[in-house]
Design a binder for these strands. Sequence first.
DNA 1: CTAGGGTTAG
Length: 654
Amino acid sequence: MVSLNLPCDNFVFPSALKACAGLSVLQVGRQIHGLVSVSGFGSDPFVQSSLAHMYVRCGEMVKARKVFDRMDQRNVVGWSAMVAGYAREGYITEAMELFRMMRDSGVEPNLVSWNGLIAGFSHSGNSVKGVATLKEMYSQGFRPDGTTISSVLPSVGDLSSLVTGLQIHGCVVKNGFAADACVVSALVDMYGKCGSTENMLQVFDEMVEMDVASCNALVAGLSRNGLVEDALRVFMQFKRQHVELNVVSWTSVVACCAQNGKDIEALELFREMQSVGIKPNSVTVPCLLPACANIAALTYGKAMHCYSLRQGIFENVYVSSSLVDMYAKCGKIWGARVVFDMIPFKNVVSWNAIIGGYSMHGKAKEAICMFNLMLESGQKPDHISFTCVLSACSQSGLIKEGKEYFRSMSHEHGLTVRMEHYACMVNLLGRVGKLEDAYQMISQMPTKPDACVWGAMLSACRIHGNATLGEIAAEELFRLEPRNAGNYVLLSNIYASKRMWDRVNRVRGRMMYIGLKKNPGCSWIELKNKVHTLLAGDKSHPQMTQILERLNRLNVEMHKSGQFPDTQFVLQDVEEQEKEHILCGHSEKLAVGLGLLNTPPGYPLRVIKNLRICGDCHGTIKFIAKFEGRQIFVRDTNRFHHFQDGVCSCEDYW
DNA sequence: CTAGGGTTAG
């Protein structure tokens, strides 16, 4: 229309600006603003309100305010857009103040004004304000409608306040809002977030007309509450019933798998999603990438990188940040850095990804350097930034630096010290052998230490073979998480390393009594675009004979060179020779053996393990790396081990 | 002709 030189009037500007607002396209909005300025309609109240709204929706509150301040006759639409905008951006005081000023200037808020304010609070995650505003609206004689309900519900879910949720549900039933699809999906979501699956299912079952958003909320709700199998089952049902599943539906089910240890399933669902013609978007990618990272499926991860570049979604900060994380977890820390440097607008998530990456690789210097660069760039650190930098310090035994970061967290950055930060400090002190200091830190905590703190203590006791403090930590853990087999294994390993076999048997008896089995060790390796899973002692892999043959040959070579496996890591009290036999079956060694067989000489190997690497395997893999002239990366639950030339990047300190 | 709502994301 503009290129045809047709004149724009005060009727077409609002419509065009509304389109910009809906799509948050600031660039076009600015151009239209320019046209408005030269058109002579710059003082039309409709045009001005629309302009203010466009800037609000593009997150440009300063620009919006400028337009609003210049308005000659401020109408209810302009006021309401500004109020909602401030609430949405988290400027609560400004929103409330403007709301008051609107009334003082003689403009009465209507239902849409109230709803906008409530939606703004919900959007910015303000759980208390949303509900409070709903109550205030009631007290001033405004009846809520379906929009009010679906605006306020998201903040109720965040509150985890089931009572409030039930009250609102009651209001929905009484007023007949249950026919509104948005209300139903918001209710399903709210009950899911409050952990009430019975209510969630009831709302879903009573739904009048099938609605895809409610189906999606149900899948997410089941997944979030640990009912993974049910989530997958209902998804399959929806597919069979020909519910018109959209990109959100597929993304939800991919996320469900990726967040619950079903990494291979996540990759398969992603493929199926594409095969039925649903295009993954900038949310799908960060949902899927953790699955690639978990099993070090680098080829899939790279494919996602290419896809993101092709689709033009790489610039999305969540997409690029999850790519950084994926490369780091797949052993490519340099690749992670390259991607990080290409992120145009970094946020705290991006910085945390690269700091965490360096930390995981034991590169404390680099992690600290990136942390300082983040501060210099003006980015405020959050509690995760501190978890990353503190764990980097503990990987490398940097006591002084760690203590200083720990102190600055609350004193300089105004952040609350959480359990995981105490756990980092216990880890830091404990690993260098300052077990008494670590124990003292726990005793002086303002809140009761949780399992991650005691777990750090127990691990430190394992490294230094301290049975006395180990027993204290273990007893706390048995009370806090009686069904976590790892704790029993750690304590029993402490005893085994001190040859206290009667106590080893006592712990194992206790485990058996409550019906716990040692978590089987499991490793993954990607070879020729296929991810292979190996379980400790499992002989089912088709190449197992060759693997064991190769490993035995390497074992002989190792003995010849005068090195012997460290057998103190075996749990059972058995003859020395048999111990070595059991160690041979550890999954990380099997994965390395498989990698050696199926890759050309000199090719680097990347292995992922679900538990911490054992000392014997660590020693053996150091030997293999040297003997075979290979770089071998092993990622365990804690960090990366980069084996090369007979040494490991962790310097035997893990 | 201009203002308000639900589902996926470290």
